[in-house]
Simulated assay, not measured.
Amino acid sequence: MAQPLRLFFSFLVLLVVTGCSPAIHTNTEAVSGFNLNNYQTFGFYEVDASGDALGANYQQPINYLQEEIARQLEARGLTRTTTDPDLLINLGIVVDEQVQTRETSILTDPPNYIGQRRYTWKAREVEVGRYKEGTVSVHLVDKDQNELVWRGTAESILESKPAKLQEQIAQGVQKLFNALPQ
């Protein structure tokens, strides 16, 4: 009897842990005839980031992203180089702060005081939270032809803690590169 109960609680914990992590949505597209095995080396375009919306720690998530992409490509037999790579990687990163709201209701948010005859109550939007939503686009460019050969995008609500964000980036990049044609 203890074994089924333990199994049930293990399943429940797994369900809660996976249910709390934000979903990562991906989309990929390859040029006809693209084969990753045709390339030996890869490198990154320089990341040019600017704007008022950049946080003070924007470079660390970019480093996480580049490290994870390098890990995925090296696992597929490519070598990272800074001099004359066969395949160049262009990254596009967009992070938007979103505001979560709800509409007030006369049932859940009744008026506190009704003392005048002409008093009216109106539904309104109330802010209940803020979160960041991120999208990364990865473009693989054939250096010799200077043409895009594969593109992938991943988007999700971003984790706020750096360790969780690094884990989320790893999961997103792995999901993207699992769709990469070999």
Rank of each mutant, 00 (worst) to 15 (best):
E67D: 13
E67V: 06
E67G: 08
E67R: 11
E68A: 14
E68K: 11
I69N: 02
A70E: 00
A70C: 04
R71Q: 12
R71H: 15
Q72F: 03
Q72E: 06
Q72G: 04
L73Y: 01
L73S: 00
L73G: 02
L73T: 00
E74R: 08
E74G: 07
E74V: 06
E74I: 07
E74Q: 11
R76M: 04
R76P: 00
G77I: 04
G77W: 01
L78V: 02
L78S: 03
L78H: 01
L78A: 05
T79P: 02
T79I: 08
T79R: 08
T79V: 09
R80H: 12
R80T: 11
R80M: 13
R80A: 13
T81A: 13
T81S: 14
T82G: 14
T82P: 02
T82M: 14
T82L: 13
T82S: 12
T82N: 15
T83S: 13
T83H: 12
T83G: 10
T83W: 07
T83F: 12
T83Y: 12
D84V: 12
D84A: 14
P85G: 05
P85I: 03
P85C: 05
D86P: 03
L87P: 00
L87R: 00
L87V: 01
L87T: 01
L88H: 14
I89S: 05
I89N: 04
I89Y: 05
N90S: 15
L91I: 10
L91F: 07
L91H: 06
L91K: 05
L91Y: 07
L91M: 07
G92F: 07
G92L: 08
G92D: 11
I93K: 09
I93P: 00
V94I: 15
V94L: 12
V94G: 13
V94C: 10
V95R: 05
V95G: 05
V95I: 06
D96K: 12
D96Y: 06
E97A: 10
E97N: 12
E97I: 10
Q98I: 04
Q98K: 12
Q98F: 05
Q98M: 09
